[in-house]
């Protein structure tokens, strides 16, 4: 029961995504505790964005994320390697296109 009390004293869990340059992808940086979205943004700034270039931050309540389980591995991720044209690497990107 003590563990339960300890868990309750923590604020909600949020996931943090950082975009390093305009047009680039938001990549997962880590997680943190916060009571609301503004606190999550501020904590993300202080914990993850104080060093290095950051252009934009997303914060998402962790409970909003639905994830696959290890059991899903087979049916979800068995790739169709025989059809190479299904992979993006099959196609050449024209010069001058950035951040694809």
């Amino acid at each position: 029961m003590e563990n339960q009390d300890f868990f309750d004293s923590q604020l909600e869990l949020w996931e943090v995504f950082l975009q390093q340059e305009q047009g680039g992808p938001h990549t997962h940086a880590g997680s943190l505790h916060a009571s609301d979205a503004e606190m999550a943004l501020q904590n993300a700034r202080d914990v993850y964005a104080r060093r290095g270039p950051v252009f934009n931050i997303w914060v998402v309540p962790s409970v909003m994320i639905t994830s696959t389980t290890p059991d899903d591995k087979g049916p979800f991720f068995d790739p169709a390697d025989s059809k190479i044209y299904r992979h993006p690497q099959f196609y050449k990107v024209p010069k001058g296109v950035r951040n694809v």
Binding site: Q10, D46, V47, R50
Partner: peptide, 11 residues
């Protein structure tokens, strides 16, 4: 009071 606020105040 929490780790994140500790970092915020120190910043």
């Amino acid at each position: 009071p929490i780790l994140e606020e500790d970092i915020a105040l120190t910043n």
